[in-house]
Design a protein around this nucleic acid. Structure first.
Lengths: 126, 126
DNA sequence: TGCCTTGGTTACCTTCAGGTAACCCATAGA
DNA sequence: TCTATGGGTTACCTGAAGGTAACCAAGGCA
């Protein structure tokens, strides 16, 4: 009997799976963009909206709520008129965006290679 | 005139955006699980299928094809009977999974905090 | 009395990722 | 000839993500 298969890990997809969890966290369309926008410092709702190209009001609100819920973002309301709402990264949020940033810069460095791989794959399977 | 807004980056969502690209790459449901399963070494189709809990044959095939297309995974067919197909990480794939792993382990370390944040947010907004 | 501002909410609709299950192919062996 | 095995493909369907656009609320100001 070979011992190969014994050593291999099995990956579960229940909700305690850390892999599954982090992907679900930041794998949506806008979370990372918002996180990165807030790395520059606190910002207001409409400013974020114009800095993140293509995001709708609805998705900005919703994604900010989710990030706030997880403790990545702090929301502060200044009861002026008109009201001013500022969003900023918490320490947890800074940690997350730092970690994500490393991944993104890896991807950025290898972006061109990947594009070439894709192109030759597609040509070979045309 | 304040100089605040001048310094802030704008994030585009065109297809050259590296952020958008990496998220699209690995943000789907199964890519990371497959990558991590292959970190243990080359593996065969049906072995992967049983090690990655809950994945369907269709999604395993599809996700492996995508990973192969980008050059993260190498697919080798051994013309035996029945046929044997082995998948393994390329160097590029190893680099990616290493980078992703750092992010996942960050998430793993802060998983509990996030769960608590969520719980208290939900209680406050009940 | 309107209208402007910021920062939303809500209803509605479309798209598409992903699940299920049936089918395919080559060949070996009973 | 029937079945088994590995590694798929295909048709079909559903749920959820996300887009659009209309509406709201509080208050200042003209």
């Amino acid at each position: 009997m070979s011992s190969d298969k014994q050593e291999r890990r099995v990956f579960h997809n229940n909700e305690d799976c850390p892999v599954r969890n982090v992907v679900a966290q930041i794998g949506d369309k806008w979370s990372i963009l918002i996180l990165f926008a807030l790395v520059d410092g606190p910002d207001r709702f409409n400013s974020l909206r114009s800095r993140i190209e293509g995001i709708s009001q609805r998705m900005l609100t919703q994604t900010l709520r989710d990030l706030e819920r997880d403790g990545f973002v702090l929301r502060t309301v200044y009861p002026q008129v008109p009201v001013k709402v500022e969003y900023e990264l918490t320490d947890l949020g800074k940690g997350l965006s730092g970690s994500v940033w490393k991944l993104v810069s890896w991807a950025d460095n290898h972006h061109e290679t990947i594009r070439e791989n894709r192109k030759s794959y597609d040509e070979a399977n045309s």
